[in-house]
Design a binder for these strands. Structure first.
Length: 593
RNA sequence: GGGGUCGUAGUUCAGCCGGUUAGAACGCUGGCCUGUCACGCCAGAGGUCGCGAGUUCGAGUCUCGUCGGCCCCGCCA
């Protein structure tokens, strides 16, 4: 850089610097060459500043500036001056000033970028991922990555202040049953044995509580070998926490304080905890999901009792055979066309509905609907009243087994809100979900499996149901949901080996298997484990929502594609036979390795 | 594993019912231009229509397969 020192960045240089000599370094965003005057928009991480090259100021620099191209890296020494009257650019934070160049150094040239760096350029994501270093130069990406940094800093500040210790746990660990598919790593020095990458630091953090560290956190990388989605990557980041001598209310209060501080510090947004709370069953009945989006209404309403009496066979037989009939009131959606209704029916069917009954409420409160004739005036009135229906509304019904109805209407509720633009921008609606079932019956495996994980404590009052009615046992688990997306979940853990054994048994995990896979935990619990509990947050998802993005890839510096590949580094890659041999791996596929 | 969608110039896209030399905008290259800021004007270059088969006199266009991006279901304690 030839002795030049950067004195300012391209954002914070203001009118106060007028008449000062400054040195800027950055990338050429755009050059506007007038033959005489040349303007260059210089971009660095912080912002953009206009540099002017004039032949009468410095002929050599002006001459050099003709050679500048997009993304050249340059150093500019020059004088800050107020822009001439009428030449200010209100779109730029530095738009009141410009830097008149006295000396230009080209620090590096660049080939033409594979895609434009314009803010609004619409570029395919595959290309962005291949040239991620270019993509990350775009201001929106710099903002996302910076926001993520601020969130992490706020987390650390808050937790440090609350006496937590940041502790790392192993990345090379052991495979455990239950949960997602593991990523495996062969052990060279232990032929035929494998490490697993952690799906979460769950067991280690509990062990740390047994160790008496009392308050632990970690911004931890986690690995799950499952298929990807917009909000799921094979490696992702959790804010993982665990505390001793606490119960649900302690963790919930601490987390509310943490989230409040994170939003205040990273976004300047004031949240007002406590957040709303729903029990699992309440959330399911009212929103059809355990992660309700409360930014809009349209709650599910049960009308099974009325449907039981009505003349519509689909409804009364469902009601008679243990199913449920529920409805949502789509307020003021009476203008939905027949095609819209057909589309919504297809939508409902994709979630398992056999059909989708609808009723349009006309001006005189009369029902316009294929099913209207099966309901007496009295039944129509009762349903309308329960759904608070008014002229211009549309009612949608689901009649089936409970799980299907909840799923279909829950999805329909969100779809209607999306289609009608009922979801307000810039809102952050947090909800706690509590009292989850401890386990649910898994048809495929023919046994109960944990809803959260096998170390979650049952509610004391439900403890005796573990052996008699496992599906009815509620757990001391809690989820934090933001705008309909699960961003965190945790529980009070089992800290007594006797209880842990009973739960393993209910999960049909044999003594042998539990000793084999979790023996160290069971043993640890017998060495004076304090009551403890914790929570883990999907950091990527939290930052994604805070950034207003729809994919966590936008808040991860180097994410993977849906096929779990890194298009930039070309991972995963083939490896040599020699490497495989060293690991005692002998592939028997036909391709050449 | 399954469903959907996309793949044409560096980029974003258009390309009709299968028919002459595959177009536009931006970008790029060269020239002109002293107040632009998506500068402007003039000229020019730039194509393995993802790949491979097939149908056809003829395929960017139709069919099948395949590869890749994205969305979703399954999966994700």
């Amino acid at each position: 850089m030839g002795g030049l020192k950067r004195t300012h960045d391209c954002y914070s240089i203001t009118e106060e610097a007028i008449d000062q000599e400054v040195t800027l370094m950055g990338w050429v965003l755009r050059r506007r060459d007038h033959g005489g005057l040349i303007f260059v928009d210089l971009r660095d991480r912080k912002g953009i500043t206009q540099v002017v090259f004039a032949p009468e100021v410095n002929a050599k620099s002006h001459e050099k500036a003709h050679r500048l191209r997009s993304e050249y890296v340059i150093a500019v020494r020059g004088r800050v001056r107020r822009r001439p009257e009428g030449m200010e650019n209100p779109k730029l934070k530095t738009g009141m000033i410009e830097v008149v160049c006295h000396e230009l150094r080209i620090l590096n040239t660049a080939v033409t970028p594979p895609f434009p760096l314009d803010e609004d350029a619409d570029v395919s994501e595959g290309l962005r991922l291949k040239y991620r270093y270019i993509d990350l130069r775009r201001p929106v990406m710099v903002e996302n990555i910076t926001l993520r940094h601020r969130v992490c800093q706020a987390i650390r500040q808050f937790l440090n202040r609350h006496d937590f210790l940041e502790i790392e746990t192993p990345i090379l660990t052991r495979s455990t049953p239950e949960g997602a598919r593991d990523y495996l790593v062969p052990s060279r020095v232990n032929p035929g044995r494998f490490y697993a990458l952690p799906q979460s630091p769950q067991l280690y953090k509990q062990i740390l509580m047994v160790s008496g560290l009392e308050r632990y956190y970690q911004i931890a990388r986690c690995f799950r070998d499952e298929d990807l989605r917009a909000d799921r990557q094979p490696e992702f980041t959790q804010l993982d926490m665990e505390m001793s001598f606490v119960e649900e209310s302690d963790i919930i209060a601490l987390v509310e304080g943490l989230i409040k501080e994170v939003f205040a510090s990273a976004l300047g947004i004031t949240l007002e905890p406590p957040f709303r709370r729903f029990t699992f069953s309440e959330a399911m009945e009212r929103f059809g999901t355990d992660r309700p989006d409360t930014r809009f209404d349209m709650e599910l309403v049960d009308v099974t009792d009325i449907a039981r009496r009505c003349g519509l066979k689909v409804f009364n037989t469902v009601a008679a055979s243990g199913g449920v009939v529920k409805a949502v009131n789509a307020k003021e959606m009476g203008d939905l066309s027949r095609k819209d209704l057909d589309d919504l029916t297809v939508f409902a069917q994709s979630f398992g509905a056999k059909g989708l009954a609808w009723v349009k409420i006309k001006a005189d409160n009369a029902w316009q609907s294929p099913i209207a004739k099966f309901f007496s005036d009295e039944e129509q009135h009762a349903i309308a009243q329960r759904l608070e229906a008014a002229a211009g509304d549309v009612l949608f019904f689901g009649a089936d087994q409970r799980a299907t109805v909840l799923r279909v209407l829950g999805e329909l509720r969100c779809e209607l809100a999306r289609r009608r633009g009922l979801i307000p921008e810039g809102r952050f609606n947090f909800v706690w979900i509590t009292d989850f079932p401890l386990m649910e019956y898994n048809e495929d495996e023919g046994r109960f499996t944990s809803m959260h994980h096998p170390f979650t404590a049952p509610l004391d009052e439900d403890m005796d149901l573990i052996e008699t009615d496992p599906g009815a046992v509620r757990s001391r688990a809690y989820d934090l949901v933001l705008n309909g997306i699960e961003i965190g979940g945790g529980s009070i853990r089992i800290h007594q080996p006797t209880v842990q054994k009973r739960v393993f048994k209910a999960l049909s995990i044999s003594d042998k298997e539990s000793r084999d896979k979790f023996g160290f935990l069971l043993e640890a619990l017998s060495h004076g484990a304090p009551p403890h509990g914790g929570i883990a947050f999907g950091l990527d998802r939290l930052v994604m929502i805070m950034a207003g993005r729809e994919s966590i890839r936008d808040v991860i510096a180097f994410p993977k594609t849906q096929k779990a590949q890194c298009l930039m580094a070309n991972a995963p890659s083939r490896v040599s036979m020699a490497q495989l041999a060293e690991l005692y791996l002998r592939p028997d596929w036909k391709e050449k390795a």
